[in-house]
Design a binder for these strands. Sequence first.
DNA 1: ACTGGTCAACTGGCCTGACCAATTAATCCG
DNA 2: CGGATTAATTGGTCAGGCCAGTTGACCAGT
Lengths: 252, 252
Amino acid sequence: MFSAVESRRLYRQVADQIRLMIIRGELAVGQRLPAERELAEQLSVSRPTLREALIVLEAEGYINIRMGSGIYVTRRHAAEATGSEREPVEGPFELLQARAIIECAISEEAAKSARPEDIAVLDEALRAMSGVVEDARAVLVADRAFHTGIAAIVGNATLIRVTGEMFDMRMTPYFEKLASHFEGPVSWRSALEEHRAIRDAIAAGDAAGAKAAMRTHLTNSQKRFSESFGEEFSGEEGRCHTAGPNKGKAAT
Amino acid sequence: MFSAVESRRLYRQVADQIRLMIIRGELAVGQRLPAERELAEQLSVSRPTLREALIVLEAEGYINIRMGSGIYVTRRHAAEATGSEREPVEGPFELLQARAIIECAISEEAAKSARPEDIAVLDEALRAMSGVVEDARAVLVADRAFHTGIAAIVGNATLIRVTGEMFDMRMTPYFEKLASHFEGPVSWRSALEEHRAIRDAIAAGDAAGAKAAMRTHLTNSQKRFSESFGEEFSGEEGRCHTAGPNKGKAAT
DNA sequence: ACTGGTCAACTGGCCTGACCAATTAATCCG
DNA sequence: CGGATTAATTGGTCAGGCCAGTTGACCAGT
C-alpha cells in the first residue's frame, strides 16, 4: 500500500496553522484576530483562500466571525459546536459531565412520579448488583439496569434510549481499557451505596434529594476515575490510545 | 415585530439549502453534484460564495470534494459517521417531553457559564431564524442551531451531540408529515419569541429563568402540536404517556 | 488484443481587484 | 453633555481569469 499522498489544499494548511495557534494558546480566547486583508498578507495567501480557512474554523467552532466587527477566538479546544463530529466517542470526563447534567434532571423527574412498581424495579437492579460486584461484566449490566430503570419511571422511551446510549459509550475497547484500571469491587461497592441513596430519595418522592444523590454519584464516579489515573490524564486531551497497563503519559 | 430583513450570510443560506437536500434524500449518497460553476449559476450566487458553502458542508462531513473530479455526497446524516442507523422512533409528544427534561437542565447549566461569545452565537441563530420564518426548511436549520448552540455553551461535545440527535428525530418523513399540519410562520414566530426569552435569561446568567424559559418553550411546542393534531386527527388520545409496557423493563 | 503514452476537455484551487453592507468610533450639533 | 451624524474599518459578495489535477478518448508500440 502506497499511502495516497493527498496534496494539501492551501486553505486547509492555513486553517491548520491558525487552529494550532489557538490550541496552543498563542491566540487567547476572546482575542480579536487581525483583519482579513492583513491576515491574508501575513500568511502570503489571497483573501478568498484565507476566508475559506476561516470558514472551516468557524464551522469547527474555534472562531466567531462578526460582520463589520472582526474575527474572535471562541474556544481553545474542539468542543465541536456545529456537528462537525470527529470520533464517535468523547472523553470519559466529558461523558460523565453530560450524564451528570442529564441524569440528574431525569432523577428529579422520576422522583415526582415514582410508583411502588417502579421502586421494585430499582430494588431488583440493586439486589442484582450487590451479588455480582466481583464480576466486572455482570456488574455493568446491573449498573445499566439501574440507570435506565430510573429513566423508565418517567415512562418516556426517548429518555430510556438516551440514557442507555450514554451508558453504552463505555462499552468501547478504549473505555474498557481505561475502566479496567479504576473499576473494581471496592469502587463498585461505593457506587452501589450511592445507588441506594438515589433509590431512597426517589422512593420518598424527594425530587431535590434524588437530583443531588445522582449528582453525587456521577461526581464520585468522575473522582474515582481521575484518582486512579492520576493527573497525567486530567487534561484529558483526546483519545490518548496509550495502550499498556502502566499509566504512561498521554503521548500525543 | 417587523419581519427582520434577511441579513444572513449568503454562503450559509446556500449551505443550509444543500444540506437539507442531502438530509431529505433529494441528493442521493454517492451522487455527484454539478460542477461549481454550474451550481453557482443555478443558485444565482458567485462561485466564491458557492465554494464557501461547499467548504462548510465538507467540514461537516456531508460531501467530499475531489479536485479535478467533482463534488460527491458522502452521507445523509451527520451522525451517520458512527454507522449506527437508528430507526426506533418514538412518538412526537414523547420526544418533546424528553427534550423538555434534558434541555431544561442544559439551559440551566449554560446560564451559569455563558460568555459574550456564546451569546453572539445564539444571537446569530436568532437572527437567522427571524429572517426565514416563511421558509419551512431553513427555519428548521436555524432552530437546530439555536438548541445545539445552547449545548455548546457548556462546552461538552456529548451534550451537543445528544441535543442534535434528539432534534434530528423530527427529520423523518413521518414527523415531517405531522409537522406540516402545525408548523407555519405563525407558530414559528411564537417559537422565536420563546427562543429570545431563553437567550435573554442565559445572557443574564439567570439559571432558573433559563430553565423555566426552555420548559415554557418546549411545553408550548407540545401544545401547538397537539392543537393542530387534534384538529386533524380528532379522537386520538393520550399518546404522550405511552411506553406503558416499558415501565417494567429496566434493561432494554 | 493489450499495454502504455499523449492530449484535450473538464473540474476544482487559487488569485487580483473591486464594490457593497454592517459595525464602530470619531465627530458634529443642539 | 448627550444624541445624531459621518467616516473609517471590517467582513460579505462579486466578476473574471489562470493554474493544476482528473478523466477518458485516442493512438502508437508490443
